[in-house]
């Protein structure tokens, strides 16, 4: 899943450790999310969105294709 986390973080001049501290997770977690190695759970994604005062979909981009039934609607 693509995301804008690195961009948002650097815009605010925060280090990965500083962002991790704000979110209450490890620095490795922030790095893994930024590099796309790990997709966060919904609660963590909401926490990130709240911190940056954005909607989840403004930070995370879903790359999976919609199932046919949904795409047809």
């Amino acid at each position: 899943m693509k995301n804008q986390l690195r961009l948002l973080r650097t815009e605010r001049g925060w280090s990965q450790a500083a962002l991790a501290e704000r979110l209450g997770v490890s620095r490795q977690s922030v790095n893994a999310i930024e590099t796309g190695k790990y997709d966060p759970s919904l609660p963590l994604a909401f926490a990130i969105a709240r911190l940056f005062e954005l909607k989840i979909e403004e930070i995370f981009e879903d790359e999976t294709e919609a199932p046919d039934a949904l795409a047809a609607e």
Partner: peptide, 9 residues
């Protein structure tokens, strides 16, 4: 108790 990524690893 730890965060989800650390727990997973």
């Amino acid at each position: 108790e730890t965060d989800e990524y650390t727990r997973l690893r």
